[in-house]
Design a protein around this nucleic acid. Structure first.
Lengths: 240, 240
DNA sequence: TTCTAGTTGTGTACGATTTACACAACCGGA
DNA sequence: TCCGGTTGTGTAAATCGTACACAACTAGAA
């Protein structure tokens, strides 16, 4: 179901089932929030954006950006609003992650939070936003430690079978940079030649015909063939 | 975040951000429910359990079992309660699927529903519960059509890389039955010899040393090596 | 001008995995 | 005793994954 209608429709014999009137009146009901886990790259390493909780029990700790879901707002819209309130970039990748609803997760009131995974490409500075290496997060408020774990798991999982990395890189990257994203998130080295072969064979990225000049041999620049999430049948990451 | 605390802590300058007092008072706030999609096998085919919605706008339609989340109850517990209210089997597989929160999904009130995927082995009859082939569901109330799609996608996806099938079969099955589960859910045929080789090599199932007698050559009976969700590195389903 | 350090770009041989495929064993019932 | 229908098993070919080395190119230093 999805509301009290069905609760009423089906048998009400279960002791813990709430009578509809109880919901309508007031109080100890359950609130809905969203939390967004924004990942981005800073000097090659994966970082997560956090904001300070300046209030009550959890004061001084960090937490992911979030907020209540408004009465007329979908979950996706609420998540994007919370993301863009802190980080300007519009159009970043955003997908639902998991709903966290343990009764004690927020000590002050009963809140069910739908967590979202966000990927932001530029990682520009924003006031009040602190970026931490994803492998070394500070103590987090609420159950946001578990949220962070879930987000990292999801990101790692999708990295192997989708083109999700497009959310972290702006067009015009070298294959070395691209590969470093994979190595950073997966935590292991990949073979340069096999990696190149694979991503080109899958048509994941496309050469732009331009090169970047540096102190060494110029590197070809690439862009993503698709900037929407697509699944590939063969894993992008075994050794190369 | 996870509640109003953080909303207060961070800048309140966003126009649509709710003042905390508004939440505490009353009304048009958002309710939380769970919906459970119970899958099971009936004569070899995948079926889903539905109950009738006997009320209001959606009267006469079918919907998945569900109900409000109680103030002191976790989401997982709420889902299991809703499942077991209709279907007796305790200990069935149950995992969170997705949170559905479009404002209009329940025409009568604003409800965010956290959907769960359930697998029930026996598929015994229960009063008020109707089983439909998953490929041919009746018109569903609310957005339960989308919920059903998501549940099927998840089941298909996990079938390839986990031992999730243990949720559908009781110990003491033949390999033919086991394979048919895969073929039914995936919608394509698998090679009998390769299938046997793979599930034995992965130690997914174990021979019990017993056989089942029928009108033909007796078939060895198997059980699952693990009855908890485990992931395998190599896909169980390519052709065999 | 030449040399060097450091990076980018490319192909091939080996092994492992996946796939296709056919036949004998076994039972109940006619 | 024969027959239909199912279960159980192995092997060869193709595909895919993996390891690996060397030439090309540039900026900057000598």
């Amino acid at each position: 179901m999805s509301g009290e209608r069905q609760s009423r429709a089906n048998k009400e014999d279960h002791p813990v089932e709430t009578a509809p009137s109880m919901e309508d009146r007031h109080v100890a009901s359950v609130a809905v929030a969203v939390d967004v886990v924004p990942f981005g790259l800073r000097d090659g390493a994966l970082h997560a954006a956090l904001v300070r909780v300046g209030h009550a029990d959890e004061a001084g700790l960090f937490a992911f950006p979030g907020g209540r879901v408004q009465p007329v707002e979908s979950l996706d819209v609420a998540a994007r609003r919370c993301l863009e309130r802190h980080l300007s970039p519009t159009g970043s990748f955003l997908e639902q992650l998991y709903a966290f609803g343990e009764p004690g997760r927020d000590p002050s009131s009963r809140v069910v939070s739908v967590a979202y995974l966000a990927l932001v490409p530029q990682t520009e500075e924003a006031p009040g936003v602190h970026w931490f290496p994803s492998s070394d997060l500070p103590p987090l408020a609420y159950d946001h430690g578990a949220v962070a774990d879930k987000a990292l798991d999801r990101l790692r999982g999708k990295l192997a079978y989708t083109n999700i990395a497009f959310g972290l890189l702006a067009d015009g990257f070298t294959l070395a940079e691209f590969q470093k994203v994979y190595e950073t998130i997966l935590g292991r080295a990949l073979d340069r030649r096999n990696f190149r072969k694979k991503v080109l064979a899958l048509e994941l990225v496309r050469p732009m015909g331009r090169v970047r000049h540096g102190p060494h041999r110029p590197a070809e620049l690439f862009q993503f063939a698709q900037r929407a999430l697509t699944t590939v049948e063969t894993p992008l990451t075994k050794k190369g």
